[in-house]
Design a binder for these strands. Sequence first.
DNA 1: GACCTGCTGCGGATTG
Length: 721
Amino acid sequence: MSDSANFEKLHKGVKRWIWNQKWASLRDIQEEAIVPILNADSDVIISASTAAGKTEAAFLPACSKIVDQNPDGIGILYISPLKALINDQYRRLQGLCDILDISVTPWHGDVSRSLKLKQQRNPNGILLITPESLESLLLNQGSWTLKAFSNLCYIIIDEFHEFIGSERGCQLQSLMHRLEFLLQKTIPRIALSATLGDMEQVADYLRPNHKIPFKIIESTASHSDLKIQLRGYLSPHEQNEEVPSSFEKITNDLYSILRGKSHLVFANSRARTEDIAVTLSDLCEKSFVPNEFFPHHGSLSKEIRESLEARLQKESLPTTAVCTLTLELGIDIGKVTSIAQVTAPHSVASLRQRLGRSGRRGEPSILRLFIPEQEITKSSHLLDRLRVHTVQCIAMINLLLKKWYEPAPTNQYHLSTLVQQTLSLIGQYGGVHATQLWALLCESGPFSSIDQPLYVAFLRALGEKDLITQASDGQLILGAKGERLVGHYSFYTAFKTPEEYRLEYHGKILGSVPIDKPLVESQQIVFAGKRWEVKSIDHEGKLIILKKAKGGSPPTFSGDGLFVHDIVRQEMRRVYHNRSIPIYLDEEAKSIVYEGFEYYHALNLDDIQVFQSGKTVFIAPWLGDQITNTITILLKLNGLLASCFGGFIEITNSTTDEVHDVIRNIIESPKLTATEIANYIPDTILEKHDYFLPKAIRDIGYGARSFNIDGAYSCLNDIAK
DNA sequence: GACCTGCTGCGGATTG
């Protein structure tokens, strides 16, 4: 530790723990974090990849501080998006905290009541909690919370990037703000984040009102080397027995490439995840070898997922997890040999996170993309001919190498979360004046897009639904319906979850399927990587009993669309324009992408954005889904039969002349606002509590989230020129 | 073409 300038500033117990670890030196982020955290006069953002020692960078100085000051009550509040991560960190912090004689308490829905009671009687040390459990503490135990946290020194937020831009992130911002208001002091926030994009934006999200300064600590340690291969697979036009489909070719290749070592296969959807896992497991059975391919996604039971995570962690048996974004998050599964991505990734940021899972000590990260495309026939669609899936992958890899990542959406209203936070505050204090609510939540809090008149209309709407009511002294209190809503445990989450049926075999729950995509008796399905038949359905108890079977395909899961960003589509256009074929393409992918380039230039898409094919007119904005959707709706409102897919707008039964006329008409007419466009959308209920709001208010949030007016008009202006 | 996260308080039975 002789090269460390700040090591001596740590508490002697902390230094003893570091010596016990036999570390040769502190990592760069750990060294740099010591002074700003000990000073405790600013927020700190520690940004580094997985396994770079972020946890220690935050806790070594933070623990030094609370041991030195020895405050009554809880000294450090750690907030995590995952219960599993709290359990991991609880184990990791034991050794350090034993030496320092400070207690660590995990606090989430699965933690036993006895452990919580112990902490409630004698609050102290470090508390590890989820946002939902913190919500419950503020709402139900306001006075205990005030006492327990009165000497709080730090709030540490793990996996902070997971929160940015979401309803849950907005809830977290509000909870931290409410806690500071309750304690009447500012608590330094320490955010641990992956290196994804603009760190100034991260700081802005960490403390939107900028009450104290922030310090950004980014790891300079470079990522390990990266090896990429993009493999193309053509699906034959006509399905027959002799020619294998691209799915068969992909699963055969996955089997031969991956078997024998440990890997992650990202397949983008739960249905495809199940399909691939069961096909690979069938291949093992056919070859009389033990199965080593297992699915992992959010609809599988906790037991099934945890046993797979444990098998990966143990590293004693070769194990490949075919997974959705569940294994992209920070659960500790060790490193795998390689990553396989089947079909194009949704975002550059998620591709980066997935890559971070591969590359054992000193080994390079290995990424193989398996991208299917359709064989071209006379009737092939424009998107197939342009080979957009393959080109999207190339564009995303280009951006990944440039270290560009999708920024989080800003200026969202999060009205549903505002319903939750308003009710929670009223529940916490018993009665609150409207002006106090607005001052806390909107003026100084995270809902800064909401001005006073809008909030008054919003409160009136809650009153009409009997969620709140006004007492004789003018204070707002919970209405009968509000009491019921706030009193139920489902109130603590900011996000909506659909109703589900549980799937059971031999008394064991395997997982769940959404209720709006029902299964029928004797239907054969694939689930948890195995084949089943539905034996019986108990609609009352929402339970489906399974028996073993031989056939079947995965059930339908529900989900929303995901937006591709403007920069990705612009990079795709650059790829077409340059016609450069990357060296990491295999022969099939090369010829596929070559076909796409030829078609792009045959249509002269470098110069033309509107073109006709038969009775259909296409528009190629080369922009993200948000702007493309906005333009599509503007065209529809002007009488065209427009729809969009994959970044292209398709107008049936029209001509380029007619489309140009309509575009001219749109840009010469008064510009519509996002809210005005949302007025035309019949169903704008998206988030958990949207149902309580009148359409006029809901549309404000919906419009801001779904449309980009300036982007759409500027694109239409370009086309008109 | 479509991802993920999370949750209380109480009654009653059982055990030491």
